[in-house]
Design a protein around this nucleic acid. Structure first.
Lengths: 209, 209
DNA sequence: TAGATTGTTAATCGATTAACAATC
DNA sequence: TAGATTGTTAATCGATTAACAATC
């Protein structure tokens, strides 16, 4: 809240708060102190209090935090009190897997369209959505209030697709292609570079055995 | 190299060096200075020199870095000079998508087996590999020198699977289930929490429109 | 040799942790 | 009221950036 800049480190922790608070609600736990939360979530109590106080004073001295209230506050902060229209570009293995993921919908990310350039794939139906020729993506974004695009194309096709998305006025890109996209900085980009992730594992494993 | 501890921040940047150096080789560029690399990779020249010097003095004053040599050094550091046997647990959408990813193999991550508990899935073939009943995973790991397991099960099944993997002596886990696994700390874990990633997008989008 | 650029030390910046007065 | 725990300031820690002597 207000104008003071929240650091990316804090923002990246928010989903974890959300996840653990949901669990506490499931377990019917009504209140929790930063110390108790610290023990299950793995952040220090101090960090938890600092993090939360970036957004407001949600706790009460001598009592702690009301689990349900805090959960709802976190939902508001993360932006889970409204829905987002999304599309997938690239109906390969990964694109199809994401299209079939039902949990995104539960969080309010509604898949509106799937696009591909391959004529063999255009027209097939994935999770009740027909794959459309990517030629039509610009028009589709404008007509359907699409805010987020998941790029699931090959490495080589990704930048070209991104350019079209930007032209069409996309607001955020979730990029699964192993490239760093050149995108105007007002557009939000999250990269999932799977290979990079794997290489972290090999880094630590290389000298084993 | 040597005993001084490399920070996670540095390790997480290594794959990006690897990627950009591969590109430079493709473009037949023979040498590069930290300043030039800085301009394309987006880290400061100072950071590049600091990062690389954690592992050795790969450059030459007045000249810069030999691209191919540096690329090979980075490969060694990341652990790409040998191969790793991997398995996938959970042959759902994501598991199947990962099984069909050919690029992991190119980096030396060889998929040896795919496991599932669903009798309807056991026996089908994905990318020439037959899905095996997860009951047999422990034995399989021991007999096939499996070092890395990709957990692609549901949230609820993940911890149980992880326990079996640990018993079987797995060395690293790539976890796609939206849980924080409880795992002995000597086992390397990389999490890909897709939902967490999406929530970063919604955080920034929530007040748009 | 002169110019360029590294390797490395020092300075700065930012994030985490500790401490404690405020207060429920 | 007394005890507990927050909100918040101060101290510490770690990572990034700047600076420059060493040297190719």
């Amino acid at each position: 809240m207000s104008a003071n800049k929240i650091s990316m480190a804090v923002i990246k922790r928010l989903p974890k708060y959300h996840r653990y608070l949901a669990e506490l609600i499931d377990k019917d736990i009504k209140r929790i102190s930063s110390k108790e939360l610290s023990e299950i979530i793995g952040f220090t109590a101090s960090q938890i209090r600092q993090d939360l106080n970036n957004f407001g004073g949600f706790g009460q001295q001598g009592y702690g935090y009301n689990v349900e209230d805090l959960y709802n506050e976190i939902k508001k902060i993360i932006g889970l009190t409204r829905t987002y229209n999304t599309i997938i570009i690239g109906a390969g293995n990964l694109g199809q897997a994401l299209a079939n993921y039902t949990s995104f919908g539960k969080f309010g990310f509604n898949l509106k369209g799937i696009f591909d350039k391959n004529p063999k794939v255009v027209g097939i139906t994935i999770n009740d959505i027909e794959v459309i020729d990517v030629e039509n993506v610009k028009e589709f974004i404008k007509n359907n209030d699409v805010e987020i695009a998941y790029i699931c194309t090959s490495r080589s096709g990704a930048q070209e697709v991104a350019d079209v998305l930007v032209e069409a006025g996309i607001e955020a890109i979730w990029n699964f292609a192993p490239v760093d996209l050149e995108i105007p900085k007002e557009i939000i980009v999250e990269n999932v570079h799977l290979i990079d992730n794997l290489l972290t594992l090999s880094y630590f494993l290389k000298d084993n055995d």
